[in-house]
Amino acid sequence: MSALFEALSARQGAVVEDAAIVHFGDPMREQRNLVTGSAVTLVSDRRVIEVAGEDRLTWLDSITSQALTQLRPGESTELLILDPQGRVEHAAGVLEDGSSAWLIADAPDAEGLVSWLQRMVFRSRATVSIRADLDLLGFFSGAAAEAVVTSAAAAPNGVPLVWADPWPAVQAGGHQYSQVSPHPAAEYQWRLAIVEADAAASAVSDLEVAGLIAADALRVAAWRPRWTSEVDERSLPHESDWIRTAVHLNKGCYRGQETVSKVHNLGHPPRRLAALHLDGSDDVLPAIGSAVFAGDSEVGRITSAARHFEDGPIALAILSRRAPMGDLVVHADGVEIAAAQQAIVPADAGATADVPRLTRLSRRPEGQDPRKA
């Protein structure tokens, strides 16, 4: 365990599960402190990956969904790695410092992501490594925590390593399917600082602290997808509205691009992410994977669930595109939980999905010469 983990886990009320500090006794208060910018979270469920070498950005650009060649020192974005059918295999935040590109990946995905990247280096001047010596501190910008944590962030090349989550706004080359305005992510000013444990432990000693439960509740409320929860073996980026920040629709060729373009321009995603407001009368929070029903038909599953300090019990669910709008029911631990549905990705998502198709030649009136049509 790092010095930072030891220092924070020694705080009063700290509850540790699976080598992570999940809360400090009051997740609701911890959420409020995060939102006001007075608290920090040790984000031990993610890993830091360094991509060094002079070809790092052009190389990453050529194999991922994001346009990266013009990324300047201090700028943040995120990327996806897709399979040939356009399904999500890996996801990572990206921060450039002028000498290295720093990737932030969910811990269960990190080793697989690094292994895949290393196999793809070939003759490119790039190296990829997990930096187990570095920790991550999460916070919301705009108040005391930002100044303290930014000053404690590692800066091996003179640029403080603070990743700004791009989720609050549609990024260049992206597209938003959600029709809700304002989007609930508009105020989601989430930051992750890459820190050296010893220096950070002393720097944050006077700040409020929050656990991962509090941080995740704010993510769910912002409809922010994560690899750990919203991605399975079938996931397309369209289904969770991830094209708004992680896919550049106008960049050059990359693996999976054909499917991304086809679904975006011609078809509807087969599934769609929805936000659920849960009935809290039974005090049961559904587990990831809990089934979602419309009447007697199972139409999807829960991907994330949380108790929010203002909204109460909430969840994200991946549903069949044909799942009806309106109230649903979640089956969890033998309890049926009523759920009010709010569409994140509408059933007719697709930028030009309803453009009329050209008449096929085989359907022209009998005897008509197609060259004269």
Rank of each mutant, 00 (worst) to 15 (best):
A147K: 08
S99T: 14
L207T: 01
G86C: 01
D311P: 05
L34M: 08
A169C: 07
R360Y: 04
D198S: 11
V263I: 15
A19Q: 15
L285G: 07
L42P: 12
Q118D: 14
R125N: 14
E54I: 07
L278T: 12
P108R: 04
Q85P: 10
V330P: 02
I302C: 01
V148P: 11
L136W: 03
L4S: 02
V330R: 13
A153S: 09
P237L: 04
V247L: 04
A332I: 02
V335G: 03
S297W: 01
Q341W: 02
V43D: 07
V247K: 01
S76I: 14
S235Y: 11
A185E: 01
S290A: 15
E146D: 12
A67W: 13
V114I: 12
I243A: 03
Q341A: 01
V209S: 13
G267K: 12
D45R: 08
S281H: 10
L34T: 06
R29C: 06
S320V: 00
L316V: 13
W190L: 13
T127S: 15
I344E: 12
D232N: 11
A373P: 02
A152S: 06
G300T: 07
A305W: 02
E146G: 03
L161V: 05
T36W: 11
V180P: 08
A373E: 06
I318G: 07
A221N: 13
S99R: 13
P225M: 07
V220P: 06
T77V: 11
P168R: 03
N33R: 07
H277D: 09
L273C: 03
A197H: 10
S205A: 06
D241P: 05
G350E: 02
E298W: 03
G334E: 08
A347I: 00
W242E: 04
L8M: 15
D216F: 11
I213R: 09
G267Y: 09
A3R: 01
S240H: 11
L79G: 09
T127D: 15
P270M: 03
P356I: 03
N157E: 13
D296Q: 03
L137G: 06
G312A: 05
A144L: 08
I302K: 02
N33T: 08
A147Q: 12
R322V: 13
